[in-house]
Simulated assay, not measured.
Amino acid sequence: MKQIQIPEELFVLLMKYHLLDMDEVQSEIKKGLMDKMDSITMRLLYSKYKSAPTEEEKQKARQEYLDKRGMLENFRW
């Protein structure tokens, strides 16, 4: 199982929510977890692009990465 690091601020919010029953931090936790999930997704797409075995798969993965990143078509090489 892989380990994932989270920011200290998110960890503190999770502690407050679970140990102190502070429900008001729920939206901040959700945003922090979504940001982390986006970061993981981008890293996986980039890794897929860099390690693709064929040039065709590499270009497909590159396009997927750039689409997810939000890179406009006219700024791509």
Rank of each mutant, 00 (worst) to 15 (best):
71 M>W: 06
1 M>P: 14
6 I>C: 02
59 Q>Y: 07
4 I>H: 12
26 Q>M: 14
7 P>I: 04
35 D>W: 05
27 S>D: 07
54 T>G: 00
44 L>G: 09
19 L>A: 09
60 K>Y: 04
4 I>C: 13
52 A>P: 01
44 L>M: 13
55 E>Q: 15
15 M>F: 08
38 D>T: 06
51 S>D: 10
48 K>W: 10
72 L>M: 05
10 L>Y: 08
58 K>R: 12
77 W>A: 15
45 L>Y: 02
33 L>I: 06
4 I>E: 04
19 L>M: 11
50 K>E: 05
46 Y>N: 10
1 M>N: 15
21 D>R: 15
42 M>L: 09
59 Q>D: 07
67 D>I: 04
9 E>D: 11
34 M>T: 07
60 K>M: 09
7 P>N: 06
8 E>A: 09
33 L>E: 04
47 S>Y: 12
44 L>F: 13
12 V>Q: 14
61 A>K: 00
12 V>P: 11
26 Q>H: 09
20 L>D: 10
18 H>M: 06
31 K>I: 12
23 D>E: 13
51 S>G: 04
59 Q>P: 03
6 I>L: 07
28 E>K: 13
19 L>Q: 13
16 K>E: 06
2 K>G: 15
55 E>N: 12
24 E>G: 13
14 L>F: 06
65 Y>W: 12
43 R>G: 08
48 K>Y: 05
48 K>F: 07
42 M>H: 10
49 Y>S: 04
25 V>P: 02
31 K>E: 11
48 K>E: 10
74 N>V: 14
72 L>P: 06
7 P>Q: 08
38 D>H: 07
66 L>P: 00
13 L>A: 07
19 L>C: 05
14 L>V: 01
27 S>H: 11
16 K>R: 14
